[in-house]
Nucleic acid binder design. Structure first.
Lengths: 160, 160
DNA sequence: TATTGTTATACTCTATAACTATA
DNA sequence: TATAGTTATAGAGTATAACAATA
């Protein structure tokens, strides 16, 4: 298949990427809502599944929010039965936030749905096409990361 | 360039896409914060720039939020000087939310930064590579849209 | 003295429902 | 009667600051 013109505008490409981004996050948020989770709460139990039972401070670092916020998120997740606060074996100041059985099942389900979604979106592509797309996305990610760490885009006033 | 193995996992591809998604939105949100805008407020003035001065009901439809929310967003944007509420020429119940000079300048600046970002991310690609990436993203978007409109992913309980 | 988590406050975004003033 | 926008109320997520208990 030959494109009629090889002048794909970078801005057009970015618009498409953003459109896809929006669609994807909306879709995932709907799925989360279906199982009774907000995006931040889902993020928390997802991290919990990866790290195992954790102190709230650790979660605050992982989710990049304040400790105060973790208190609120864990409160909500406890009330809805996804996690519980267990005593810390050595530090009596701290809790070990732990997935309940329901929490574990939910994370497993979300993980399965994620794989299904991936299959639905990329499964029809030939292996070659998948590699090409992966390479393209990886390149964009690298350049974006570089831009972010290097400069602050525009000069920016020194805190107005 | 030949990949060592042609077995790119769909799930891996989705993870990369989500990683990029996260990076992109964080980057853009930082830029918005720099000019004094939250994402919803930026969305509103962006739409306003596209449509021209609009009634709040119209904005509620466009942004897919309640009219009550538009009141709050316009309040904030008015206070920070990006928009103003002008009288509607024919309907005395309604306002015409209008970009101020500052609002117009800000939208223009954001549009420029968007083009710059696109150049930084996709400019180095050959025209051919850009077309391929665009095709890949478009395909994914189509399949996602189809999945969303067709089924609700998982059967889903009929409202628990 | 430093750290863990909480209470106290506050701001933004979001939603529903009831109300005012127009159409 | 229906529509445009508001007030009233509520809940989630976020942040800072002050404070408790424990390291």
């Amino acid at each position: 298949m030959k494109s009629t013109a090889d002048d794909t505008d970078p801005a057009e490409l970015l618009d498409r990427l953003l459109e896809l981004t929006l669609l994807l996050t909306d879709d995932m948020d709907r799925e989360l809502a279906r199982v009774g989770l907000s995006p931040p709460r889902a993020h928390l139990i997802w991290v919990l599944a990866e790290r195992g039972a954790s102190m709230q401070q650790q979660l605050a670092t992982d989710l990049k929010v304040t400790a105060r916020n973790i208190t609120a998120l864990v409160d909500g997740l406890t009330e809805s039965g996804f996690v519980s606060r267990e005593v810390h074996p050595t530090d009596r100041r701290a809790f070990l936030v732990t997935l309940t059985e329901k929490g574990r099942r939910t994370v497993d389900q979300l993980a399965r749905e994620r794989v299904e979604l991936a299959e639905g979106l990329f499964g029809v592509l030939a292996g070659e096409e998948r590699s090409a797309l992966l390479a393209g996305l990886t390149g964009v990610t690298l350049r974006l990361n570089h831009q972010i760490t290097t400069a602050g885009h525009t000069p920016a006033e020194p805190t107005p």
